[in-house]
Amino acid sequence: MNPFTRTGAGLLRPAMAKAGYGVWLATATLGRLPHLRRRFRALLDYTYLAGVRTTPVVLMVGFFVGMIVSLQVGIELARFGQQESIGLLVAVTMAREMAPFVTCIILAASVASSMAAELGTMKVQDEVTALEVLSVDVVSFLVLPRVLALTLAAPLLTLFADVVGILGGGVIAVTQLHLDFSGYLHNAREALKTTGELIPLPEDLYVGLLKSTVFGFTIAVVGCAAGLQTSGGARGVGETTRAAVRTSIILIIIFNFFLGKALHS
């Protein structure tokens, strides 16, 4: 084997093995959905951790993102005397792109990392092995409630980010672009009125919510898969946590592009 092949194989094989494990875990988790009744209590606990405890950060970041979009786009629109359209642009940008994207980046950094660290610590301390020895279904017991909690929490948090982002944009519209707040809100509401053909909801809104549902599921699977593949003690847990956040963010960006393209067309 020549050095290039050897180097390529050395880099790609572990990555492919990890990707394969992630796909298997995602499929296995979906296959455990009938176990949901038994995991309901754990689901509530993790939804609280993933959703409620992340809400303040999402609200604050969402508000500022709305203000940034409004300021940057508003300044350009004002040059052409089109600043009245700022409500439309902020609403559509927040609903389709910024709210799901920013919310899920926050979830990747906070929740996926904590899932990877928690399961990674359990793995290196033999707790996961103990569950296997006790014939406990590890995917159903550990992974299903975490994945489902984040899959449900992500679109809810995105909805909150949509609302505060539009309000943040409104603050800039009033203070910097000297627009009327009710006019701004009317403009934003009009922008979100177009309903989809399949689902009778504002199209831009459900495109964003659909994206964040996919991102939430992906982040949780990546966090759990990284945690369950941890080895090498405390150092391994640290590496696992870093890898979970890195992989989650990369996948969010890639999926965002392809989902955006598919849902737009």
Partner: peptide, 8 residues
């Protein structure tokens, strides 16, 4: 298990 391996 050597460590007990209890679920924490």
């Amino acid at each position: 298990f050597q460590s007990g391996a209890l679920i924490n």
